[in-house]
Simulated assay, not measured.
Amino acid sequence: MTKAREVLVIGGNRYFGKRLIARLLAAGDRVTVLNRGSSPAPAGAVALTADRGDEGALTRALGDRTFDVVLDQVCYTPRQAELARRVFTGRARRYVLTSTVEVYEHQHSAAPVRESAVDPLTVAVDTGLPWDDPEFLDWNYGEGKRQAEAVFAAGPDLPYASVRVAHVLGGADDFTGRLAHYADRIRSGAPIAVPPVAHPATYIHVEEIADFLFWTAGEDFTGPVNAASHGELTVEELAAEVAVRAGGGEPRFETTDAAEVSPFAFRRHYGMDNTRAVRLGFAFGDVRRWLPRAVAETLGGTG
């Protein structure tokens, strides 16, 4: 009989985080969920309340607990990463950081990028930047994740993996409003703002990223790994599928040089190469096969 794992999930009470927790519980893992108390832990999980940025409060909340794996859904800065590394070194056997495709924001490649394009060991860490300023953090989201990865990479006593997540689609609980933006404009006939050249991107379904994080928790590889379905989509393909589900109308695009354009209308290529994850044993779906279902889930109806 397989021994149940002790798993800590930091944050993650909505969207793909709650799906991850459901998978852990269904597998028989003993799951502890730590957050600031803004939402209750699901039935079957142990709830801990603490601000993950307050080292004393976090240490007190954890008590003498140790974990086979920590799944950190809400680490956004090198300060948070340094605190976590201090607290969990010797307390966790494995640490999984949810990172982002945005770590590649300065990579201008026509081909999907591999993990080696951003090596955390070469990323400079500056904890003196105003990471506690929400506006600064919002504008420097990718940099915050890069530096967080770098902090974990520099600590060999805490084995870690960083999951670089592609843009996530699907689910009736998609809170971003990005697909709804297209549906609203298509229904009203309003133009969809795009740059003069809009590049494609890789995506992943909300259920697939939950599967991927669950799988990663049980593996022993370390370092960064890209999580993206096979294939890429253009903004035109996304809008065309939304139009099918939006009840009529055709997408009308308007090119602009303005900074603000519609969601998923990218000025650079946002493709990630998923070869490493595939070689490690994860089987991704194809984005074009699940896209109709994802749009239907988010906008309503059946897919």
Rank of each mutant, 00 (worst) to 15 (best):
G249Y: 04
R94W: 08
T77S: 13
E82Q: 15
G301M: 08
R91K: 13
T216R: 03
T59L: 10
T256A: 12
E236A: 14
V206H: 04
F214T: 12
G37L: 10
A92Q: 03
A239R: 03
V244Q: 02
I209N: 00
A27K: 08
P40A: 15
I192C: 11
P159M: 10
I186F: 02
S39L: 00
L58K: 09
A81H: 07
E236L: 10
R185E: 01
L58H: 13
V244T: 12
L280P: 00
W131S: 01
P224Q: 03
M1T: 03
A210N: 01
T2V: 14
K3W: 04
A47V: 00
L48F: 13
V103I: 15
L238V: 15
E105K: 14
L25T: 08
A183I: 09
T122L: 14
A166H: 02
A193R: 10
Y182P: 01
A294G: 12
P159Y: 07
A50N: 10
A277G: 07
T59R: 14
D211W: 00
Q80Y: 05
P130V: 00
Y160K: 06
N13I: 10
A193H: 03
A243T: 07
A45G: 01
E115A: 08
D273S: 11
A4S: 13
L71V: 15
A296Q: 08
L24F: 15
A41N: 07
V242T: 01
V206W: 00
G37R: 11
F266C: 02
R164A: 05
G142F: 03
A111R: 13
E149T: 02
A198R: 04
E105Y: 10
Y270E: 12
L238R: 03
G142R: 00
Y203F: 15
H167T: 11
F221M: 08
V118L: 13
V46M: 12
